[in-house]
Amino acid sequence: MAKKQNLSLLEMILVIIPFTNALGIDRFVMGDMKWGLIRLVIGIISVGTVGFILWVIDLLFLVQGRYQTDMLKYLK
């Protein structure tokens, strides 16, 4: 099981808000520039549809206490 990540209140709010999460803004604030840029490009290209799906996934992992900024850790 993945190590629980301690998030600040601002970071949790950014994860919960669909717009900021779908465009990767939450990742930029957390200092994960690589995944922030990837999420931004995906969000723009897909007009937010894929970003919305990724937001739902982030919310599920956040509720479970297994939220990670690195998307590849979700697959492990």
Rank of each mutant, 00 (worst) to 15 (best):
V50E: 04
S46N: 07
G48L: 00
D26P: 02
N6I: 14
L23I: 12
K4V: 12
L37V: 14
K34M: 13
D32P: 00
I16Y: 06
I45Y: 09
L23D: 02
Y67W: 09
I38G: 03
R39S: 15
E11W: 01
L9V: 14
W35Y: 09
G43C: 07
M33K: 08
S46R: 06
K4R: 10
G65Q: 04
L23P: 00
I17W: 01
G43R: 06
E11K: 00
S46D: 10
P18C: 13
L60R: 09
I13G: 08
R39K: 15
I16K: 04
I45P: 06
L10P: 14
L40P: 00
G31M: 05
I44G: 07
G43T: 10
T20M: 06
D32I: 07
S46K: 07
G36T: 08
V63N: 02
P18G: 13
I44L: 14
W35R: 01
V63F: 14
L10F: 09
G24M: 12
L54P: 05
G65A: 02
L60G: 14
I16F: 14
A2R: 09
R39E: 15
A22N: 00
T20K: 01
L60S: 08
T49A: 07
G43Y: 04
G43H: 09
G43E: 11
G48W: 04
E11H: 03
I42K: 04
T49N: 02
N21D: 09
G31L: 03
M12K: 13
L62K: 07
N6R: 11
L9G: 12
Q5T: 12
R27G: 07
R66K: 12
W35F: 06
F28R: 05
G31R: 00
S46L: 05
I38D: 05
I38M: 10
G48Y: 04
V47M: 08
Q68M: 10
L23T: 08
G51R: 02
V41C: 10
Q68A: 04
L54N: 11
V47T: 10
G48R: 01
I16T: 15
L9N: 14
N6E: 15
S8E: 06
S46W: 13
R66W: 05
N21R: 02
I42E: 09
V29D: 00
R66H: 05
D58T: 11
N21C: 13
F61D: 00
M33L: 10
S8A: 10
L10K: 00
L59W: 11
L59C: 12
F28I: 11
G31N: 03
L62P: 10
G51A: 05
N21L: 08
F28D: 11
L40V: 11
G51F: 09
